[in-house]
Amino acid sequence: MCKVLLVDDEYLEREALKIILHEELEGMMIVGEASTGRKAVELCETHNPDMIFMDIRMPGMDGLEATEIIKSRDKEKVIIILTAYDDFRYAQKAIKSGADDYILKPARPADIVEAVKKHKKLKESYREARELKIDELIHQIHIEDYKCAKEKLKTVVHQLIRLYGEQQEQLKENAQMIVKKMLETCEEKDLKPMQHWSKGSSPLEGITLFTVKERLFKVLDHIFEEIVHGKAVEDNKEIYAILNYIEKNIHRPITLEEAAEYVHLSSFYLSKLFKKELNVNFIQYVTERRMERAKELLENTDLPILNIALELSYHEPNYFSKVFKKVVGMTPTEYRESKGKEKSQS
């Protein structure tokens, strides 16, 4: 159900809007009406509408001022300006005030329907990015699964950039919200990942479209650094502890003996546990995870293949290429070229 507030000093205009909303659209509920901007601001506080149809010219506080106040309190409220002024300057002022859309009076039913459908869809997308995807990420942090948490965060960042890539402030606000939820989960688990940041600095300081992914992943890395190095294995979570340990140390060779020592198990027992839980042996799993990291670097950076090999502690580039081809089915150069072609075609 979409809750709607109608704001216009002309009674007949509000009645016409009601008819359009009820007859042309489903799931619309009129929760209030106002004839002044001041009353609209009050009703927003008491009725919490999702969408507001706002006239510009009204006695006292006009629609532009009311829009600015409402948006300063809740940026996610959809405000559609209705006006008889066919003047580009008014449209500019409306958008500057924070309005989401601008429709000329007398508004045709088709214009109202199109605007409502467009903004309902956007709100659903925002809600999905804010709640569903983030909740999946938070769940993976809660159960301490580093590999899946990284995959979920990658999805969240993709959504974030798709929805807010051109809106710097909203991008930053949503990134802050994600970090806040991640850190709230840490508090529940008595973890203190923020101690890894230099005093007085913030993970989101100076965040931009180009740095948001790196910053959010840095927060996640610090969280799992706390989990891996600061928390004992408990409740038979040896396999999760090992997987997290591998993810945190993927840049260097990891032996079965080293991993077994980390969780205080024999290498023989850990080898059997690995095969039972993951249906793959320890060395194969580590190699595949290292190649996944190599694929990320090949796709998202311009690092030479030699540097990528060294980053993953392969000191012989030819051997690295041989392993990569065995796991991925093509050489590092072929993989990078294929991903480059995909990006240029999309």
Rank of each mutant, 00 (worst) to 15 (best):
M51W: 05
F88N: 03
A94C: 10
Q92L: 14
H47D: 13
I52Y: 01
A84G: 15
K105G: 08
E45G: 13
I103M: 04
E33P: 05
A34D: 09
V31F: 13
K96R: 10
I80Y: 00
I56T: 10
I103P: 00
A84K: 01
Y90I: 05
Y90G: 02
K77V: 15
L104T: 00
L43M: 14
S72Y: 08
T67R: 09
D101R: 04
S97N: 13
R108K: 14
P106Y: 00
L64V: 14
M54K: 11
S35A: 15
E45I: 00
A84P: 06
R57C: 10
A99T: 07
G37L: 08
D86W: 00
A84S: 12
K93N: 12
V113K: 14
P109V: 05
A66P: 05
D111G: 08
A40V: 12
I81Y: 03
R57Y: 11
E42Y: 05
P106E: 03
A110W: 01
I52G: 00
G27K: 08
M28C: 10
R73D: 06
A84I: 01
A115E: 09
M58P: 07
G63C: 07
R57V: 12
S97W: 03
S72L: 10
V41K: 13
I56N: 02
D74M: 05
P49M: 13
R89V: 12
M28S: 06
V78R: 05
V78F: 05
I80S: 02
K39Q: 15
A94K: 05
